[in-house]
Nucleic acid binder design. Structure first.
Length: 858
RNA sequence: GGCCCCUUGGCGGAACUGGUAGACGCACGGGACUUAAAAUCCCGGGUCUUCGGACGUGCGGGUUCGAGUCCCGCAGGGGCCACCA
């Protein structure tokens, strides 16, 4: 008997599927569709284990749904713009396009070696001019629908690389590449109006039942709805400022208004700018605030600092009280109104600030058991519940009632109003980079920003660019940006920024419906295929990508391109792949490949250096604890890799990669092979009629097989792949111990093996396909329907019940299914172990749960 | 600092709405086959035990005939957000 030859067999079936073109998806009206999508990869050059897990899960679902008769769309593409390509250009003198497309070719080969049921005819990369041309059309649609606007804002600026950095690219206040301290700069850029949909994006989360609770919660927190009030404080002390109108602040604690002791505005507030014009000291203060980084560490260690302006603010509810107005470094311009009132007694930041600048601290919320005469605030603000006091008409109210009451009063006096504030900000998409989708706008000195006319699209990236000069290669290009204004014909310049790569991934799933369409989307195709029925990817995209895509889909609906507002009806977030880490004595990380175990169990490198094993951590290049999937697939074949990925750990949890684990999977692949091979000769021909009588071990096996069909079907539906794997092991174990005694016995054996192979199909497609052929089938397993369990075989004739005495298990009894209470009680009482436990005492109560348990209470 | 989640053998994990805790795999131990090894096959296992049983799902309490599952408190681990007023 042959050993399973992974390489030949797997290549054979991959080409058979390709020849049969099994996985090409076509719109078939009237046939129920199912769109399975895994988050498309960044073409770094090689796939990693996270990809293997992601695409294995997706492929199980896609193959299963196909077998269930759905018209499945399962496409693949490349999230191909981004900074690494520019870094490669700088470091290796290779053009980003060349580097990216070479990586795509290499990764496509690797993905194809996994045997995924993908429709490769729909493949595209976001850096294809065909794709980004359509994205530019969409950008112009956003402009036409007033969903994108231009403004100046504060960004992280790397003074060495001359570029804006995303927050994630600022590490400890320094640029991740240059290491230079990041500055804050005010730069113009384009913003998508995602905040226009804040309420809708938040509300709809409640109805997205097929999304993980965790992701919905993270998005809800990110959108951050707060109820509160806007309050107007009339300003005094400077004619210009008074003309500016009252100071508008946002608060979630209007109930503490009587405890206000100051007002503070952001260093970037217009009022600050107005005052700074004639106040050099204030200008210096603002400049200093800007030098402080926006990194986590900088914020944590930053001291609360303020600058006292000559202004005072009149309290809206206490006519004879005025409050000092400060510029404070902790007030953010882009949340609320960019200004606050400070109530030090009930807000820790305000308290820190008040103590430093010696401002008054008046408690207005009395904790439940506190004495109003003695309650005082020391170093900690009181933020809990309580009764309002020191607060005129609010005295005696609860916090909640006081909020309502004070808002009513403010509204009566036109001194404020109740409002809802979101944490979500508009999405800034301009990036000062080359390898991205050019923003299709021309800046004209007379006409302002002018959209590039449709006929002139796409605005393509120039190829002759210089990466040796720091900064944006598009801005440096000698001719690219110089154009005539499409409106007045005068000399003008292109926008030299490109779009955030998250824009590229915000609509690719819709483009897959009609990847060659002349317009961004073909509404007939999107109507048929969208929403994505099952989206699968990493939890790291819980907020940004998934929120942007939800926003985009709403915009696309407004443009008439799609019917749905939610892009992903079902979302599954897979866990990370972990691996043990190893370090040499000098602390250097050692790759698992280089670790050997000596006879005495000690670990060394191949050169004999001592190695210690560290914690099990997420696979990462920095810890060098990665395992290359290409090596694994080369050694064991894709089915073994896929099988191991699905075994043991539930897919949403972390999965530890171990050599023993992959070896175990390899053993099972071979065991399944041998099981079928060994049985082939004794089997009746394919399609032989079912024998009239099946009994004894054959019937038992048949019951188990059909129960397995039933169980695996629901396991796959529920993403419980580890349980499906366990059931296949159990069935295999049963088959190993099965001895076919007669014709009925071998008939059942054939049925069992065929079902075993069909159930394995989505998980180990190559092996299953080969065994299916060896069992005599000429039709591809990939084109074979999912089996149905024989319902009558799922019902047991006899059941085992546990018998408890006072809740402790004392025995088990066998009873016919659905035996009545008296029979169950009698059988329980007849058991010797039960009698021993009862010790002749009278029963006080008997609980019988049919087919489950008998509990005797004495 | 805020919000959320998790905790079951040596390990990963099973256990549908409260009803036989530990399926299945990994690792381990024993045996068979072999000159031998590998591969393969079979068997074993929560802990303790006076062999009757006792104790066991992070810890302490509660509800219930019955709790891994529900409730309260605590501890440990993890995640996300974070000068968000």
């Amino acid at each position: 008997m042959d050993r399973y030859n992974a390489k030949d067999i797997e290549a054979k079936w991959q080409s058979a599927w390709a020849t049969a073109d099994c996985f090409r998806a076509e719109e078939t009206p009237g046939r129920e569709k199912y769109y399975v999508l895994e988050m498309f990869p960044y073409p770094s050059g090689r796939i990693h284990m996270g990809h293997v897990r992601n695409y294995t899960i997706g492929d199980v679902i896609a193959r299963y749904k196909r077998a269930r008769g759905f018209n499945v769309l399962h496409p693949m593409g490349w999230d191909a713009f981004g900074l690494p390509a520019e870094n490669a250009a700088m470091e290796r003198k290779v053009h980003p396009a060349k580097w990216t497309y070479a990586n795509i070719a290499a990764m496509r080969d690797q993905l194809q070696s996994m045997g995924l049921s993908l429709d490769w005819s729909r493949e595209f990369a976001t850096c294809d001019p065909d794709y980004y041309a359509q994205q530019q059309r969409l950008f112009l649609e956003f402009m036409a629908h007033d969903l994108v606007y231009r403004k100046e804002t504060w960004v992280n600026w790397d003074p060495v690389d001359h570029t804006v950095l995303a927050n994630e690219q600022v590490i400890d206040g320094k640029g991740w590449r240059s290491g230079a301290p990041v500055e804050r700069r005010n730069l113009p850029g384009w913003f998508f109006k995602i905040t226009e949909y804040a309420e809708e994006l938040l509300d709809e989360l409640q109805r997205m039942e097929r999304w993980p609770e965790k992701v919905r919660l993270m998005q809800a927190n990110w959108i951050g709805r707060s109820e509160g009030a806007r309050v107007f404080f009339p300003l005094e002390g400077d004619a210009a400022a008074e003309a500016h109108g009252p100071l508008e602040v946002f608060t979630t604690r209007p109930d503490t208004l009587f405890g206000a002791s100051f007002c503070a505005v952001s260093p970037h507030h217009p009022l600050t700018a107005a005052l700074a014009e004639k106040d050099p000291e204030l200008r210096a203060f603002v400049a200093e605030c800007d030098r402080l980084g926006t990194s986590e560490e900088a914020i944590e260690t930053a001291e609360k600092r303020g600058y006292r302006t000559p202004l005072t603010a009149r309290h809206p509810l206490i006519p004879d009280q005025t409050l000092p107005v400060c510029v404070a470094n902790f007030v953010l311009m882009d949340y609320g109104t960019g200004s606050i009132f400070g109530c030090p007694a009930h807000d820790q930041r305000d308290l820190d600030f008040a103590r430093k600048y010696d401002l008054s601290v008046t408690p207005v919320v009395l904790p439940p058991d506190a004495d109003p005469a003695t309650f005082a605030i020391d170093a900690e603000a009181y933020v809990g519940e309580g009764r309002i006091y020191n607060s005129d008409f609010l005295n005696g109210l609860s916090v909640t009632d006081a909020k309502r009451s004070v808002i009513e009063r403010l509204e009566d006096l036109s001194a404020g109003r109740g409002t809802v504030q979101f944490r979500l900000r508009d999405w800034g998409v301009s990036r000062q980079r080359y390898w991205g989708c050019p923003i299709p706008v021309i800046h004209c000195p007379t006409c302002g920003p002018v959209p590039v006319p449709d006929a002139q699209l796409p605005v393509t990236l120039p190829e002759d660019v210089d990466f040796d000069t720091p900064g944006n290669p598009l801005a440096h290009h000698p001719t690219w940006k110089k154009v005539d204004c499409p409106r007045c014909g005068g000399p003008a310049e292109r926008d030299t920024d490109t779009m955030d790569t998250f824009v590229d991934s915000s609509w690719y799933f819709a483009r897959f419906c009609s990847p060659q369409a002349e317009r961004p989307l073909d509404s007939a195709a999107t109507r048929y295929w969208l929403p994505v029925d099952q989206y699968i990817g990493g939890i790291e995209h819980a907020v940004l990508h998934l929120l942007y895509a939800r926003f985009f889909t709403r915009a696309l609906q407004r443009f008439g391109d799609v019917e749905t507002v939610e892009p992903f009806a079902g979302l599954f977030t897979q866990g990370m792949i972990t691996h043990a880490t190893y370090r040499a004595e000098d602390g250097a990380w050692i790759e698992p490949n280089d670790v050997m175990q000596a006879e005495d169990g000690r670990l060394t490198t191949s050169e004999g250096r001592a190695v210690t094993q560290g914690r099990i951590e997420k696979m990462s290049k920095s810890k060098r604890n990665t395992v290359d999937p290409a090596t694994i697939i080369e050694t064991y074949g894709p089915d073994t890799a896929r099988w191991f990925m699905l075994s043991d750990s539930p897919p949403e949890r972390e999965m530890e990669w171990t050599d023993a684990g992959i070896e175990g999977a390899w053993r099972f692949v071979n065991r399944l092979w041998r099981l079928v091979e060994a049985a082939l000769e004794s089997l009746p021909p394919r399609g032989a009629p079912m024998p009239p009588v099946i009994e004894g071990p054959a019937l038992d096996l048949r019951r188990q097989v059909h129960k397995t069909v039933d169980a695996i079907t629901s396991d796959i539906e529920a993403f419980h792949f580890n349980k499906a794997v366990a059931r296949l092991y159990e069935l295999t174990n049963a088959l190993s111990g099965y001895d076919a005694k007669d014709a009925a016995g071998t008939w059942v054996l054939r049925e069992a093996l065929e079902l075993l192979v069909r159930l394995s199909g989505p998980m180990m497609p190559h092996l299953s396909e080969e065994l299916w052929q060896r069992l005599g089938h000429s039709e591809l397993l990939a084109n074979t329907a999912w089996p149905d369990a024989e319902q009558t075989l799922l019902i047991e004739e006899s059941v085992t019940l546990a018998v408890q005495v006072n809740g402790k298990k004392r025995a088990t009894i066998e009873l016919p299914r659905d035996a009545d209470q008296q029979a169950a009680e009698a059988a329980a009482l007849a058991d010797p172990a039960v009698q021993r436990a009862l010790q002749g005492q009278a029963l006080r109560k008997v609980i019988v749960v049919p087919n489950r348990i008998v509990n005797l209470v004495i």
